[in-house]
Amino acid sequence: MMHSSTASLIAPRISQLPPRAGLGLKAEHFKDVLESLPDVGFFEVHAENYMVAGGPFHHYLGLIRERYPLSIHGVGLSIGSDTPLNIEHLQRLQTLLARYRPRVFSEHLAWSSHGPHFLNDLLPLRYDLSTLQRVCAHIDQVQNTLQRQILLENPATYVEFDQTHFDEASFIHEVITRSGCGLLLDVNNVYVSCVNHDRDPLAYINALPLHAVGELHLAGFAEDIDQSGQRLLIDSHGAPVDQAVWALYQQVLECVGPVATLIERDNQLPVFSELLAQAELADCYLLTTRERT
């Protein structure tokens, strides 16, 4: 059977997450969540952490899933890979999504596997025509297998490539138009990449297909300097959201309206109440946006 893009099957912007702040769910906080049942819009988990047979991870996620909307975020599909997608991994993902029926599934515009090896990081792509075709073909394969729209996250990058045909925002625009996937706009990644490559964050954001935004991510970065002494920001997920990223978030909300927003924190994990305070702050931004529009 010839099959083409799933674009025609899927209406744009079908995120079913409430326009609230959500939190990344960490095993360290399972009990805090179930004991205090905080007023959080949704929880998000990394798909690969739950690709295990049984035990506490499934036990707690099952209980939390009964009480909150869930979003599943993949870090291992390697959609930008120059080798075929790992079918076994895609099938595991299908099983996981069938079990938990999350409101949203998202992945990254990046690659993380080469041949048999998984590198456990989100690596950058050369934005040329062959990458565009490959990424779209992979997204079609994923959306057809999972029978749902996925959201694709814009990356944080530290280098760029020669012989590119698109700037990143136009590349994302093309991918979303051709594949019919949605956009997970990571505001921290926009800020990190724009500082690293000397771009204007607002111009970058305005060049994105904002109608397709289904979720926003906020996170903290680490700061370094490169050989020439210029600021080099690193998407570390190990710090609170920076003031500059909150300011950019405000501007994003003015463009897209209130959209489900995740506070991501994977490293140097603070106590749960500290994460909750960041979610409450994001909720304040969302509420103000709602009132204004």
Partner: peptide
């Protein structure tokens, strides 16, 4: 090969990956 950055210093940037 093929990496670029705004100031030409790709090694310290590649080192992040």
């Amino acid at each position: 090969r093929g990496l670029v950055s705004r100031n030409g210093h790709v090694e310290s940037r590649f080192a992040v990956y």
